[in-house]
């Protein structure tokens, strides 16, 4: 039952967090210079035209009052209407969210596989040149940011050896018989592997660009943690039982060493989601981040607010999942 208490407590703090985020975003987009009205009117519009449009979007009222109106709507599921796209914000965000979730999940999967493999290999060969080589690779991977990796990948796999698609989420000539926006998931479920292959060809590079720095962090932290665990008494005892080095690492050390890594991966994963904004732009990937940039350029206030709230929800959700996984993996926390 303590588990349930924990969950409820986390949900309560999540609500407070989201409220804070909403207040800050709402205020900031209204205080910074530039406004959507100026973007919409042709040059030479009169002050009267400006005033009329302002009144139409409710921008003539005080900021607290605007917030109350918007907040009341949000509580009732109405996130307002995008100024530039003239569609409900909720529908726009929900339409793009699956693309970003698929991209981020794919990147996370790649990062865990690459980082995990690097950490295990380095631990298995600790103290040798193999470990030194992995350390150097990790250092390089970490010191280049995700969008630069994106450019590098475009040069390598898009220009020099054009094996992957550099632009978009899916080839535009493909007919998609899908009912949801989770293309990758749905193509697999519907056994349309031709579409899956096309989607993977598009998602590979942006996902890899996002994954490389995270993989380096996972590799470094997990390796350190594994090396420390390998010196503990219960690992030594397992050796006397007849287990070989690889078995000892996987069976005795990994599960305990993974805990500190997990917390870090949770935090870093939220950075990765932040990174999707620019990487999606780079690869013209039709996700939330790409839409966010357009929204900012157009000063589309309701859309910016909706997207930021959505990101905030993802961040808090990821942290919640990490917390719960941590408890599940660590028997000492389960009953505590």
């Amino acid at each position: 039952m303590l588990f349930l208490q924990r969950l409820l407590w986390r949900l309560a703090t999540t609500a407070v967090t989201l409220f804070g985020v909403a207040v800050i975003v709402f205020t900031v987009v209204r205080v910074v210079p530039g406004n959507p009205i100026a973007m919409m009117l042709p040059p030479g519009a009169t002050d009267a035209d400006v005033a009329r449009l302002k009144a139409l979007y409710g921008l003539d009222r005080s900021i607290p009052r605007q917030f109350l109106i918007w907040g009341w709507g949000v509580l009732h599921g109405d996130f307002g209407t995008s100024i530039s796209l003239r569609q409900p914000v909720l529908g726009l965000v929900l339409g793009r969210l699956p693309a970003t979730l698929e991209l981020a999940s794919m990147a996370l999967l790649m990062a865990v596989l690459m980082g995990g493999a690097a950490a295990l290999t380095a631990t298995r060969h600790r103290g040798t040149r193999v470990e030194a080589g992995i350390d150097v690779t990790n250092g390089v991977a970490l010191s280049i940011p995700d969008f630069l990796w994106g450019l590098l990948l475009i040069i390598i796999f898009g220009v020099l050896m054009p094996v992957f698609d550099i632009s978009g989420r899916v080839s535009p000539d493909l007919k998609l018989p899908f009912t949801t926006q989770f293309y990758l998931v749905e193509s697999v479920l519907r056994l349309r592997f031709d579409i899956t292959a096309d989607l993977l060809g598009h998602i590979f590079m942006p996902a890899l660009a996002l994954a490389i720095p995270l993989a380096a962090i996972i590799g470094q932290v997990l390796k350190q943690s594994l090396k420390e665990t390998m010196e503990l008494d219960y690992v030594t005892l397992a050796r006397t039982k007849g287990y070989g080095e690889t078995r000892v690492i996987l069976r005795e050390a990994l599960r305990n060493a993974i805990l500190p890594t997990l917390t870090l991966v949770g935090v870093q994963f939220t950075f990765l989601i932040g990174g999707t904004v620019i990487v999606e732009r780079l690869f013209s990937y039709e996700g939330l981040g790409n839409m966010a940039i357009d929204a900012v350029i157009n000063r589309d206030l309701p859309l910016i607010q909706g997207i930021v709230l959505c990101f905030a929800l993802i961040f808090t959700g990821v942290n919640l999942v990490v917390d719960l996984t941590y408890a599940a993996l660590n028997p000492r926390l389960r009953h505590a």
């Binding site: 008494d233 005892l237 039982k241 007849g242 305990n256 993996l329």
Partner: peptide, 21 residues
């Protein structure tokens, strides 16, 4: 294998010699 089969260790510190996981 031979050591695991024919020999065993009773360690010094029981608090650290069992795997917590």
């Amino acid at each position: 294998r031979r050591i695991g089969q024919r020999a065993a260790l009773i360690p010094q510190d029981p608090l650290t010699a069992l795997n917590p996981a």
